Amino acid sequence: MTTFLPKEVQAGLDSARLLSLKKASRLRVNIDGQTYPVLRMWKTGFSVDAATAPYLRGYADLYDGAIHLFQCLIIATDEEAGEMIYEFKRATAVADKPALDFEQAADAPVALLTDQPVVDM
C-alpha cells in the first residue's frame, strides 16, 4: 500500500487541520503589540499559522485567553505543514503575587487579633 497523496489533497488536509487547530486553541502570543493565535504548544515551544506570523524572535508574552501564562524569549526554528515553529530559549511563569524574600512558616498566623473592645455606634 502506498502513502502518496496528490498535492491538492494534501493541501486540503493541511488547511482543514490548521482550521481545526485555530478553532480549538485559546492561546495567543503577543510580541511588540502584535497578537498571533497559537495553534499548538508543547514543553519546549509552540506553533503559529505560517501565513499570518513572520519569523519572530525576542521577548514575547504568552496568554490563555486573558490569563498571562509566560514571559518568554523565543526564536523561530522551522516552518512545516503551514505552521511556523518557535522554540523557547526561556519561559518564565507569571505569578499572580510578588515573590517572597523570606521563608513563611506553615503555622504562621493569618491575621493579628487585639484585645480592644468592639465599639457599637
Rank of each mutant, 00 (worst) to 15 (best):
L5H: 05
A60N: 00
D64M: 05
T44C: 03
A91R: 14
L13V: 08
R57T: 06
T2P: 13
L56W: 08
Y86E: 01
L39P: 09
R90W: 04
V119H: 10
E8Q: 13
K7I: 04
T3L: 08
R90Q: 10
L113T: 14
L73T: 11
M41H: 07
S20W: 01
R90D: 10
P117M: 10
L19V: 05
A91M: 08
P109A: 02
I31K: 14
P54L: 00
V38E: 01
D107I: 05
S47G: 09
E87I: 07
E8H: 08
I31P: 00
M1K: 11
C72L: 11
V29P: 09
G82C: 09
T44I: 00
I74E: 02
D96Y: 06
A51I: 04
A106N: 12
E80R: 12
T2E: 13
L56F: 00
R28E: 01
I75Q: 11
A91I: 01
A51E: 15
D101T: 13
T35V: 14
A108G: 00
L62D: 03
T114E: 10
A93Q: 14
I31S: 02
K22I: 05
A81S: 12
L113V: 14
E103L: 09
K43Q: 13
L69Q: 14
N30L: 03
T35D: 02
S15Y: 06
C72T: 09
S15E: 15
A53V: 03
A51C: 02
A111F: 12
T52L: 10
A50D: 15
G12Y: 01
L13D: 10
D49P: 01
E83R: 09
A53C: 15
F46D: 09
T114M: 10
I31F: 00
D49I: 01
R28Y: 07
A106I: 11
L100K: 01
L39F: 08
V9H: 03
